[in-house]
Computed example of a mutant assay.
Amino acid sequence: MMAQEMRGEFLSHSADETREYARRFASGLGPGQTVCLTGTLGAGKTEFMRGIAEVFGCEEQLSSPTFSLMNIYEGSMRGRPVELHHFDLYRIESEKELDAAGFDDYLSGPFLSVVEWGERFSSLDRRYTRRVELLITGDEQRKIVIS
Rank of each mutant, 00 (worst) to 15 (best):
S94H: 05
D16Y: 13
F25K: 10
G75L: 03
G30M: 11
T66M: 03
G57R: 13
G30Y: 04
E59T: 05
S94L: 12
E47N: 15
P31F: 09
A15H: 10
F87K: 01
I92A: 02
G75W: 05
Q33N: 12
G32K: 08
A15S: 14
L84S: 05
L37S: 02
L62H: 02
R50V: 04
R50F: 08
L69G: 04
E93K: 14
E74K: 13
E59C: 10
P31V: 08
R23G: 14
T18F: 12
L84C: 08
E95W: 11
E93W: 06
K96P: 02
L41V: 13
D88P: 01
M49K: 01
R23Y: 08
K45D: 05
R24V: 06
G30T: 03
H86A: 01
V35Y: 01
R91Y: 05
H85R: 15
E47Q: 15
G39Y: 00
I52P: 01
L29D: 06
N71K: 09
V35H: 03
N71P: 02
K96G: 07
Q33D: 13
V82R: 11
S63F: 10
D16R: 15
G42M: 08
C58G: 09
R78N: 14
C36M: 15
E60L: 13
A26H: 06
H86E: 01
S68G: 07
L29F: 08
L89T: 00
H85P: 01
